[in-house]
Amino acid sequence: MTVQNDKLVIAGREFSSRLFVGTGKFSSSEVMQKAIDASGSEMVTVALRRVDINNPADDVLTHIDQKKCQLLPNTSGARDAKEAIRVATLARAASGIEWIKLEVTPDPYYLLPDPIETLKAAKELVKEGFIVLPYINADPILALHLQDAGVATVMPLGSPIGSNKGIKTRSNIEIIIRQARVPVVVDAGLGLPSHAAEAMEMGADAVLVNTAIAVASDPVAMADAFRMATIAGRMGKLAGPGAQSEQAEASSPLTGFLNS
């Protein structure tokens, strides 16, 4: 299989790009828009917040090409299932979009997702017809429970949101990938293009990156670097890597030396 005809399918929608990008923390909407373009992404996350009525900000949706990109509203800020369901319901009412990145993070310091509330909300949202993409800790049993509940993907974290630390949960993500019946998206903590490549080489179906691109000195160049790294990692996985060995395996012939 070549990377050209290698499509990711989530809930019946085909994606050519396996890099999902977030839209937070950019210095301006213009930079964000250029970075999304450079990333080649076809899945873009947004958040829902109260309007500051005395200082209404620019409408982020005017900067996202929804013909090319699937909009993925998130439930960030929700601390329990009830709040997450409320945000999801508002998001669907706002846009008619049934896709929802489910995140329930009661602890503001590490922003780690609450597994019990996430599962509870996922069950309810699936029942209400949402396409649910839950953000989870790299917990293989939780991933199985969520798949049984009917989620469209599972999105285990590499390390805490915005930490740029890379994949610190590798062994558990490997188990999740091995057991997965839905696409696995490594979300959160990917700080460098090499982290995205690592996730894809491990067999992840996609990666989600926001902070690493948005806070880079040159977000557009970083978006392009993540685009290439995601493709490189995926191609490396599809190409079938050679086995590891405990001892050296000579690359050059071991006969016909000139000194014999």
């Binding site: 947004v46 829902l48 309007v51 409408d59 508002l90």
Partner: peptide, 10 residues
């Protein structure tokens, strides 16, 4: 009354 809108987020 709640007035909400989409903003940048990850």
């Amino acid at each position: 009354i709640e007035l909400v809108r989409y903003v940048g987020g990850g």
